[in-house]
Write a protein that binds this DNA or RNA. Structure first.
Lengths: 150, 150
DNA sequence: TCAACAAATGGATGAAATTGATTTGAAAAT
DNA sequence: ATTTTCAAATCAATTTCATCCATTTGTTGA
């Protein structure tokens, strides 16, 4: 993981469909060299996958919500496979605090969200926060910090 | 936005670097046809960008946290440009509830996270939830639901 | 029935990715 | 100090892919 790898990763983060040739020009090495580095980055698990970001509103999913769930440890075994299987869920983290799970999800209607919440309440108490607006859309982590960085 | 567009979008969501030729084979249309459709999807804003997902732990950012902030309306104007400028922040949403902002962020150390929290407390009271483990890594929304969907 | 338009195909051309052979350069061993 | 070794680069050749353009198809509305 040297400077060139970092350049490759940080460039790809922002444009996953850039060609190897352009990457090669940016990094001042040849295209085959970029190709082998890329393969290594994938093999080492540093690059996990390439995702296209979609405007879910335009596709009919205007409801975004964070659902917190108070999950008792004994139910984890049942909860994890379940939450993975729900197509509306785009992320789920186990966190510190009394609400142990934070679920990020999208829905077509508030009714659908309500159905989901009713369904998961068999695992524990929930708290739902619906998104009004987004000031920072899902974006890459800044890997070459300049200012305002910790 | 027909069935073919949906196929293109849902395929690209999972593999942003797939070639037009492969997409063409999957959709049973020609490569030029995919190309024009893709351009339209980008122009219409349905596809917003192509991101490469990185294992931030492996790059030295093992701390992921959700920071909730009780932000008073009068401070929004100052807060939004600020939060955009912080490279550690990968998402920020305005939500229902007494904590009006949910910030998703990554840090190299808990100390760095602490610095960040101290810094944003000038905007209001905060509540921090550190991620222990992730059961659903950031993934695309399922656009062609089968079961377990709401 | 016949424009008129949107969108797909097919072939040609130029660009890019991949492969294999070879070279370079730095670190470890003699 | 010289040699060995290995990783990683370049170069050249081949294959694959993207784009362009002319033509065709299919649908809608006069």
């Amino acid at each position: 993981m040297d400077e060139i790898d970092l350049k490759i990763v940080s460039t790809l983060q922002k444009d996953a469909r850039i060609s190897l040739k352009k990457l090669a020009d940016i990094c001042f090495i040849s295209a085959p060299a970029v190709s082998t580095r890329l393969t290594h980055l994938e093999e080492r698990g540093i690059i996990t996958n390439y995702q296209t970001q979609i405007d879910y509103k335009l596709l009919g999913y205007p409801i975004k919500a964070y659902v917190s769930l108070r999950l008792s440890p004994k139910d984890k075994e049942a909860f994890y496979p379940y939450i993975k299987s729900v197509g509306n869920v785009v992320a789920c983290d186990c966190v510190t605090g009394s609400y142990s799970q934070i679920i990020t999800c999208y829905f077509k209607t508030t009714k659908a969200l309500d159905n989901f919440i009713n369904d998961i309440q068999r695992f524990g108490e929930t708290k739902t926060q619906i998104v009004f607006s987004t000031s920072v859309e899902r974006r890459p982590l800044e890997l070459t910090p300049t200012e305002n960085y910790f």
